[in-house]
Measured scan of single mutants.
Amino acid sequence: QVALSRTQVCGILREELFQGDAFHQSDTHIFIIMGASGDLAKKKIYPTIWWLFRDGLLPENTFIVGYARSRLTVADIRKQSEPFFKATPEEKLKLEDFFARNSYVAGQYDDAASYQRLNSHMNALHLGSQANRLFYLALPPTVYEAVTKNIHESCMSQIGWNRIIVEKPFGRDLQSSDRLSNHISSLFREDQIYRIDHYLGKEMVQNLMVLRFANRIFGPIWNRDNIACVILTFKEPFGTEGRGGYFDEFGIIRDVMQNHLLQMLCLVAMEKPASTNSDDVRDEKVKVLKCISEVQANNVVLGQYVGNPDGEGEATKGYLDDPTVPRGSTTATFAAVVLYVENERWDGVPFILRCGKALNERKAEVRLQFHDVAGDIFHQQCKRNELVIRVQPNEAVYTKMMTKKPGMFFNPEESELDLTYGNRYKNVKLPDAYERLILDVFCGSQMHFVRSDELREAWRIFTPLLHQIELEKPKPIPYIYGSRGPTEADELMKRVGFQYEGTYKWVNPHKL
């Protein structure tokens, strides 16, 4: 086992960053958080920038500027975001240094004079007029057009580079997404736009490419001749908990499936790229999406959770019991969808996408189930092999396979070949997804960000279904809070070829 401390991990990262040409360590950078008073800024962006600063992973002359409508001070920003920093008493001095680099400007999102004030403020910072500028839009999409237009007109660096990070949702359907994309691309070049999907920053999602293309053993079996089906799962054990009003506007397909799960599907299904260059990788992902037809209604199961009468606390409440959810809402909190990649490698292999709230566990994984062994000599005792990439929690890679049961006879039983990170790298604290992705933006690497043509294809696949749901308002199937979801989803999976045995229990190697 390799035991690495946080300091050692960050030392390795620093070495990698400083050796590259793309990370300008000594240049002045300004990180501007648009929507600095909001939840995302408070819980994710400010803490992430602090962790990067604490670990010495930001360029040395980096300033952080918050911008929002609320009249706040840096002290206010500190008060609301610091509880999420997880700072230790030993880091007190470092924390003071961090907040000394912070400033805040209040202004409207659609007022040109406010942006001119913001620009004057940035120019007044040390070497601010020639600094590289990175704008993070932690804002609702309704203000994107006004904000990007004003940034472009008043706040661009004339000497350094300018980059803009856009948070999902990128529209509600193909038409609104196209409108937003066309607007942003009329102001910024594609190499300046970073559409963030934080799932692409997760260690195991990034590991998929290495697993596939750096190991000879997987190449020959990664196709329709050997793989019976692919299941991509995202499960949350909690409901909307008072935030249903926002969720109800989008629903589970827009929230998770059309982005996170579809991105994971691309990494499983794509061909080997010409290189690890950002556009070479994204070219292959677009090719996969172009091979997927629009979702067919007979390959869809929609569910909505109801309270568990035997549960406790939140578990007793259904989705419609959330006071922020519109009365009688038919918005799905669970969806199972089957897609097919219609190309030579994957023809006929079902890709089953499942996601839901208020389920029995927290889990995100990719599961490849292989065909049955031909010419069975073990009297149907063999179960199908599976390769599982567990994204969260407890990152893991393992192969479910058959071995001989101890004893006199040739009785096979299920076991696993474990390729888990935790076994080799004991207690290594890896940077989280937002840390990686923000560092990628500083480096100018777009590999783990969504390109406009990729986004367009993703919406093309799901828009007809979303429009049909909005028009017909089908009643989702009720499922109990804390269950596996509607049984109809299991029946759909069985119908397209997935075999669920229920006889195997994964042993978490992190707890051995």
Rank of each mutant, 00 (worst) to 15 (best):
M270Q: 04
Y305G: 02
V496A: 10
R390Y: 06
D453N: 07
I377M: 14
Y479I: 01
N299A: 08
A374K: 13
F442D: 00
Q446V: 04
T503D: 14
A396R: 13
L359V: 06
P326F: 05
Q369I: 12
V338Y: 03
V256D: 06
G482F: 01
Y504I: 13
H371R: 11
E470W: 05
H371A: 08
P273G: 00
N385T: 13
Y434P: 11
Y319R: 00
T463R: 08
D372T: 02
P309A: 10
V507N: 06
G407H: 04
L419D: 06
P350F: 01
V349L: 00
G497N: 12
T330K: 09
V268Y: 01
D376S: 15
P323R: 11
H371S: 11
T420Y: 14
E457H: 07
M401D: 04
N394R: 13
Q369K: 12
E435N: 15
L387K: 01
R367P: 02
M257Q: 06
E344T: 12
H371T: 07
A364I: 09
E457Y: 04
A297S: 10
L455Q: 09
S293T: 10
M408N: 15
V366I: 13
M401S: 05
E312D: 07
M493P: 03
D321G: 05
V397N: 04
E470D: 10
W346R: 00
T331Q: 07
D321F: 03
S445Q: 14
T316Q: 14
W506S: 05
L265V: 09
N343W: 01
Q499E: 11
P273H: 00
Q296G: 09
Y500K: 13
N259A: 14
I480V: 10
D440K: 05
T331H: 02
Y421S: 14
T316G: 08
E314M: 10
D310A: 08
G485E: 06
Q380D: 14
E470T: 12
D310P: 02
K405W: 07
V268Q: 00
Y479M: 01
E472S: 08
T399F: 07
L267C: 12
Q468Y: 09
V301C: 08
R282Q: 04
A364N: 13
L339H: 03
Y421W: 14
A297H: 09
R484Q: 13
F449I: 04
P509S: 10
V496N: 12
G444P: 00
H467P: 02
M408F: 06
K383N: 14
H260R: 15
D440R: 03
V286T: 13
G313F: 11
L419M: 15
A358F: 01
S445K: 08
Y504C: 12
H448S: 14
K475Q: 08
K511H: 10
E416Y: 12
E491C: 08
G485F: 01
G502F: 09
C355N: 01
V397L: 09
C443D: 15
R460L: 01
I377Y: 15
I377F: 14
L339A: 07
M402L: 15
R460K: 09
V288A: 05
P412L: 14
G303L: 00
A433H: 14
Y340D: 02
V496E: 12
Y481N: 14
T403D: 05
D255L: 07
P309H: 04
Q499I: 09
G307P: 07
K357P: 02
Y305V: 02
W506G: 13
K317P: 09
M402H: 14
T324K: 12
R367L: 13
D255A: 15
L419A: 07
P393K: 06
A374V: 13
V450I: 15
K317M: 09
R495V: 07
S483I: 01
L430M: 12
S415L: 15
I477N: 10
G328P: 06
K429I: 14
F370S: 01
S445Y: 12
F334K: 02
V366C: 09
H260W: 15
K404Q: 15
R495A: 11
S415A: 06
P431N: 14
N427G: 14
G502L: 13
H448G: 15
Q263C: 09
A489V: 14
D372L: 03
Y434Q: 09
P478N: 06
L437P: 12
Q380N: 06
L417D: 05
G375C: 11
L439E: 04
V391P: 13
E470F: 06
E395L: 08
C266G: 12
T316V: 05
V325H: 07
V373M: 14
L465T: 09
Y319K: 00
P406I: 14
G502R: 12
M257W: 01
T331F: 00
L353T: 01
I469S: 07
T503L: 12
V450Q: 15
Q381A: 04
R282T: 08
T487R: 07
A269W: 02
C382L: 13
Q499N: 11
N298R: 10
L359P: 01
G348N: 06
V391K: 13
G313M: 08
Q499C: 12
R460M: 02
G311I: 09
F334I: 01
N411C: 09
R484S: 14
L368G: 01
K429V: 13
K473C: 14
P350D: 01
K272R: 10
D376P: 11
N299M: 13
S278N: 14
G497W: 10
R362P: 12
D453W: 01
N308T: 10
G318T: 06
E413V: 11
K404F: 14
Q263S: 14
E395Y: 14
M493K: 13
L368F: 08
N343F: 02
F351G: 01
D321R: 05
V388G: 05
E271M: 03
R354N: 14
H467E: 09
G313W: 05
R362N: 13
N360I: 02
G311W: 09
W346V: 02
F409K: 14
F351Y: 03
K383I: 12
T463S: 12
L265I: 08
E395G: 14
Y398G: 06
F449E: 00
M401R: 03
A458R: 15
L455S: 04
A332S: 08
E312R: 13
P323K: 08
L492P: 00
G422Y: 08
K475G: 10
T503I: 14
C382E: 07
V507M: 15
D280S: 09
I377R: 03
I480K: 14
A358W: 00
G348V: 01
K363N: 14
N385K: 01
F370M: 06
D490I: 12
A489F: 12
T463H: 13
V349S: 02
A335G: 09
Y504N: 14
L492N: 03
N508G: 09
P431A: 04
I389F: 14
Q499D: 15
A315I: 06
K494V: 07
T333F: 02
V268R: 02
V450P: 11
C355Q: 04
Q258G: 12
M401Y: 15
L492F: 08
C266W: 01
I389T: 04
M408E: 15
Y421H: 15
L368M: 11
S415R: 14
N508P: 15
R495Q: 13
A396M: 15
H448F: 15
A335I: 02
A269I: 03
T399C: 05
V256E: 06
A364S: 14
Y319N: 00
V507C: 09
E435P: 14
A458P: 02
L430P: 14
L353I: 09
